[in-house]
Simulated assay, not measured.
Amino acid sequence: MEQLIARVKGMILSPAEEWRTIQREPVELVPLFTRYVMILAAIPAIAGMLLMMAFGLFFSAISSAIVGYILSVAGVFVIAKIIEVLAPNFGGPQDADAALKLAAFAPTVAWVAGAAIIIPILGGIIALAGGIYSLYTLYIGVPTVMRVPQEKALTFTLAVVGVAIVVNIAVRLLTGVFV
């Protein structure tokens, strides 16, 4: 738990330095997901569920939390694959491990800020700010982790975000789930 807290703190307070640390670390899929992604992705799901339950929407709250959580965790895999496939088009290597690191750690701030969702209106603004900051941390991590040249980092980040949005919309349309 100490490592998770230290990583979260690093991603919030000094993302460039944290990305350099992450870049040097080996990645193991199962520990990365069980000790980091699955824990942090649960934060906004649980907060949203509690808020909906406060308004008496028990079944909707539980189903929304479960679907949102599963999509968040699965989204890390999808984003990692998008990053891996797009990187060579922007001067970076097709590196599955590096792509997984970037996809798993970039949403850290969004997940943590998602705890604020439990507060009506203000919480949504805080969560949105966390999401925007996560996009910034993604951009900061691109040259370090994926070794994409700095001059192409913004374009690469925008391409990843654009493709991820299209994939997210497609998945939600196919599953009929807009939560």
Score class of each variant (00 low, 15 high):
residue 18 E to K: 09
residue 21 T to E: 14
residue 10 G to A: 11
residue 63 S to D: 12
residue 39 I to Y: 04
residue 27 V to Q: 12
residue 39 I to V: 14
residue 12 I to M: 10
residue 22 I to K: 05
residue 69 Y to E: 00
residue 65 A to G: 10
residue 12 I to Q: 04
residue 24 R to E: 13
residue 30 V to F: 12
residue 8 V to E: 02
residue 28 E to M: 14
residue 62 I to L: 11
residue 22 I to T: 05
residue 39 I to H: 06
residue 67 V to D: 07
residue 33 F to Y: 14
residue 46 I to F: 03
residue 29 L to F: 15
residue 19 W to I: 01
residue 10 G to I: 13
residue 11 M to V: 10
residue 10 G to F: 08
residue 51 L to G: 06
residue 50 L to I: 07
residue 70 I to P: 03
residue 33 F to A: 10
residue 21 T to K: 13
residue 30 V to K: 09
residue 51 L to R: 13
residue 57 L to A: 13
residue 36 Y to F: 15
residue 8 V to D: 04
residue 41 A to M: 08
residue 22 I to H: 05
residue 52 M to W: 07
residue 48 G to V: 01
residue 16 A to T: 12
residue 31 P to I: 02
residue 38 M to D: 05
residue 64 S to R: 08
residue 39 I to Q: 07
residue 66 I to K: 06
residue 35 R to H: 15
residue 46 I to H: 00
residue 66 I to R: 09
residue 60 S to Q: 15
residue 37 V to A: 00
residue 52 M to H: 02
residue 31 P to W: 10
residue 48 G to W: 00
residue 19 W to Q: 02
residue 57 L to N: 14
residue 19 W to V: 02
residue 27 V to H: 08
residue 66 I to Q: 06
residue 15 P to Y: 09
residue 59 F to P: 05
residue 46 I to V: 12
residue 11 M to I: 10
residue 29 L to K: 06
residue 32 L to T: 13
residue 53 M to K: 03
residue 13 L to N: 00
residue 63 S to Q: 12
residue 15 P to D: 02
residue 51 L to P: 08
residue 41 A to K: 08
residue 40 L to W: 04
residue 38 M to N: 02
residue 58 F to K: 03
residue 18 E to P: 05
residue 41 A to G: 08
residue 49 M to D: 03
residue 17 E to Q: 15
residue 16 A to I: 12
residue 22 I to S: 02
residue 15 P to F: 09
residue 47 A to R: 04
residue 67 V to P: 03
residue 45 A to C: 01
residue 10 G to V: 11
residue 29 L to W: 11
residue 69 Y to D: 01
residue 57 L to P: 07
residue 56 G to A: 00
residue 48 G to F: 04
residue 24 R to I: 05
residue 46 I to W: 00
residue 21 T to F: 11
residue 66 I to N: 09
residue 44 P to K: 05
residue 37 V to E: 02
residue 26 P to Y: 04
residue 64 S to Q: 12
residue 25 E to R: 15
residue 17 E to A: 13
residue 28 E to N: 15
residue 69 Y to N: 02
residue 44 P to H: 01
residue 63 S to M: 14
residue 46 I to N: 06
residue 35 R to L: 12
residue 57 L to V: 07
residue 62 I to N: 04
residue 25 E to S: 15
residue 27 V to T: 11
residue 60 S to V: 11
residue 63 S to G: 06
residue 63 S to F: 15
residue 49 M to G: 04
residue 36 Y to S: 08
residue 9 K to E: 12
residue 31 P to R: 07
residue 69 Y to Q: 03
residue 52 M to F: 07
residue 38 M to S: 08
residue 8 V to R: 04
residue 63 S to I: 13
residue 19 W to A: 05
residue 65 A to E: 01
residue 18 E to H: 12
residue 26 P to R: 10
residue 20 R to E: 14
residue 33 F to K: 06
residue 45 A to D: 00
residue 17 E to R: 14
